[in-house]
Amino acid sequence: MKVNYNVSAMIANNSLQKNDKLLSESLERLSSGLKIANAKDNPSGLAMSRRMNSQIEGLGVANASSNDAISIVQVADGTLSEIHEVLQRMNQLAVQASNGTLTDSDRQTIQAEVTLLKEEIERMANTTQFNGQSILDGSFDLKGYVTDQDGKTNPNIKVSTYSDNMDQGSYLITGLNVSYINLVGTTGVDKKGIFCEEEVLKEIKIYKDGEEYMTNNMLVSIQEDVLTLSDSTGKKLSIQIDEPYAGDLNVELTTTGAMTMQVGANEGQTLDIRINKISLTTLGLYNLDLANEAGAREGIDSIKNAISEISAIRSRLGAYQNRLEHTVSGLDITVENMTAAYSRIMDVDMAEEMTVYSTQQVLSQAGTSMMAQANERPSQVLQLLQ
């Protein structure tokens, strides 16, 4: 028996410290509910879980962004629905004004209502907002710019609209020679428009990168002050011209300007929502005048075209909403699955950990008892000295 060095106590102390450390770690896992409470517990697992958690949080924000996009579409569609109703009323009035039993005085009364309805369309288009941003005034329509043949911009000549399948880049429109009027008609309705000989219209061409564009049955048409070039493939470009002009036009289409919504957690996971500009000019109703029988008959066709235009825009918005609803559903499923995977990495199995805790608790208590016994052993030497 030795007195100077109590090896038994040292062995008991080492075991007690080891068991006490394991007991503390088990308590930490049980109290936090985490399998990986510190980086040392599982370095690679911690790195993976942090990336997954970042993805989950990002998907949550993307889900909210997608729902905001749905709300924007619903606000725009609600206003367009009311504009549809206004156009239906205008169509009824146009049909009524076309009836030969009415006098021009009766038609003036009808035109008074039509004038107010036209003003209401403009008001709704300019005042419909979401989060303080106007959404039907062209703010989120595709942008394009026009310069004359000298390379100068002209506020009276601008891009009205163009189709989605128009390519980005620079275009050259040749052969233009149009006259322009802007006056108050005999019935008191403001009227404006451009005019061009039929033979001149046939000579108008559009080029891109030096090659003729829209080669599939291109059609050039004029509605009020808007010149439209289109072909059988669905390509369409409309230029608003509010002055007499002869010469070429340079057109730059950016194919940008739509509202970009972040619908994913990573860069580039976006959806562009294009909301066409709504105005009397884009609808072809600026010159609508039902104060005489001829104008009323022409108005029926103009209003039907406007109804078709609004219907096309609402169809696009409906497609956006359907897509966004599927996007939200997909995000919900992704978050659910990623959360389950994150939980498997990070969350502790409480039942299993309680088993470990109970074991370590018994070992710690036993180690404490044995430490006390080992510390008593050197005192037994005193019995030999008696």
Rank of each mutant, 00 (worst) to 15 (best):
D167V: 08
R89S: 04
I333W: 00
Y162P: 00
M261W: 04
S163G: 03
K143E: 00
Y145E: 12
S49F: 06
R377L: 15
V335Q: 13
E199D: 15
S71V: 14
A97C: 06
Y145H: 12
L317P: 03
A341Y: 02
T103F: 01
R50G: 11
G185W: 12
Y162C: 02
K202T: 08
N266C: 01
M261P: 07
T327L: 04
K208I: 11
I275V: 10
M214F: 12
T101E: 08
L46F: 00
L382Q: 14
Q129D: 06
G188A: 01
V86E: 08
T228D: 09
M52F: 00
I194V: 08
V184Y: 10
D167A: 14
S44T: 13
I241A: 00
D190A: 14
T233H: 00
D41F: 05
V328D: 11
N276V: 11
I204C: 05
G193L: 02
S179N: 14
L34V: 00
V95D: 11
N53W: 13
L183D: 11
D106A: 09
S230C: 09
Q380C: 05
D106V: 09
Q269S: 10
V200G: 01
L385I: 14
T115Y: 08
E243M: 09
E298C: 11
G318N: 10
I181Y: 15
T270D: 10
L237T: 01
N38C: 05
E243P: 06
L385P: 07
R50T: 13
L176C: 05
S364T: 05
A265N: 03
Q383I: 05
L80P: 03
R29P: 06
R123M: 13
S32I: 07
A39P: 12
V95M: 06
S134Y: 01
V95P: 02
M124C: 07
T161N: 13
N305Y: 09
T115F: 03
Y357R: 00
A47N: 04
T128P: 02
V381M: 13
D148Y: 03
M346C: 06
K277S: 03
G78C: 01
L288E: 01
N91H: 14
E119D: 14
N337G: 08
T359D: 04
I300E: 07
E25W: 00
Q361I: 00
L59R: 06
I121S: 11
I157N: 11
R323Q: 13
E120I: 06
Y320H: 10
M48D: 10
D301E: 15
L317Q: 10
E252K: 03
K208D: 09
A9G: 01
M124Q: 15
S24D: 02
G60D: 11
A39S: 13
A37V: 15
Q129P: 05
S315M: 03
G185L: 07
K208N: 07
R123S: 15
V189E: 12
I110P: 04
L382R: 14
L290V: 12
E120Y: 07
D106H: 06
V178I: 09
I173F: 04
V220D: 07
I204R: 05
I83L: 00
L16E: 10
I11L: 08
G367N: 02
T174L: 05
T233V: 12
T153D: 01
L237A: 08
Y357H: 13
T282I: 10
A9L: 09
